[in-house]
Design a protein around this nucleic acid. Structure first.
Lengths: 179, 179
DNA sequence: GTCTATAACTCGATAGAC
DNA sequence: GTCTATCGAGTTATAGAC
């Protein structure tokens, strides 16, 4: 892995753990094993590097979701597979956590990939919900599903246990059942 | 409002907007119209001040929830009243956002009120869910309800619109209906 | 491409005058 | 109780040597 790559990967890790406000160029350089000059050679600054990191994380999230949602089974089964997929629950969602970061939301370049990720996810889930007609509003149901996932991370982090996350997922799946 | 009070209120505002990591004593002092010495006279430092602010915010959240949950109507009606209550959606949840703050979660004194708030909320909602027997697991359903709320804020902030929040709320309420 | 040096500033806190 | 001065460390970036 070359220096540029190590800088992006280190930034991804730190953005996930500490957010944009809590991550300094110095920490990124230390984790990447790169010097100050090296970072500023490859990127114009913290923001451009964060953009590269967020873009990659958003792309991965989308690919992971699509893998479950385009798999085999009925719409409901694929949603269950998506929700029950193995996740790093206590670390939270690497994209969702950025919505709480004021400096990310204030910078159009950083905000855009976050906005697009959730917009895509809600739309994609609504399509899957619409496949099985249960008399549900696809957009509202899709929003509730994504929200349960994002909120589940909040509950798990608050409790420092994965149990509330799992309860939330099983709770919404029970509600979706037989509909 | 005396200086001590203004410091706490300013801290509450800033913790909500920018989180703990993103809030400096200097900013707090400026918003409160207080000097450096004043802050350090009333509080030992940033952490103690944050604890006072978080305690108050947590107490308010709990009182606001209890007002809806102990109101009139069936369990389901009170849950709907709670979820549909007017909220500052784009600002997000002042307690939930703290779960994303690494320095809050690392400090036991700051973490405790956050943990207790969500623990209480899940328990209280489970009691209300259990009132109307619909064959649902109260703990799982309660977790799903709180998660939808918390995740709804994430979706609204990502979109910079309140609509996805409202869709998530109506989505879960539709799923809860007739159960 | 990567390094070190330095700049100008902010961070969280302490000291001591008033 | 509140003020200003100061501290040592960290922040984000630029400059220029190698």
């Amino acid at each position: 892995m070359d220096t540029r790559e190590r800088l992006i990967e280190s930034t991804r890790t730190l953005l996930w753990e500490r957010g944009y406000v809590g991550t300094s160029p110095k920490t990124i350089q230390q984790l990447a094993g790169a010097g100050q000059g090296s970072m500023y050679h490859h990127f114009s600054g913290k923001e451009e590097l964060a953009r590269a990191a967020i873009d990659r994380t958003a792309e991965e999230l989308r690919a992971a979701a699509e893998a479950q949602l385009s798999g085999p089974g009925t719409g409901r089964e694929r949603i269950a597979a998506y929700l029950r997929r193995e996740r790093d629950v206590l670390r939270g969602c690497p994209v969702g956590r950025l919505t709480q970061d004021p400096d990310v939301m204030a910078a159009p370049a950083l905000r855009a990939p976050v906005e697009e990720t959730f917009s895509w996810l809600r739309t994609r889930l609504a399509e899957v919900v619409a496949e099985d007609d249960g008399g549900l509003d696809p957009a509202a149901t899709a929003a509730a599903i994504v929200a349960t996932l994002q909120g589940g991370y909040v509950l798990a982090r608050a409790a420092d246990r994965t149990e509330p996350f799992e309860q939330a997922i099983e709770g919404i799946l029970a509600l979706l059942k037989t509909r």
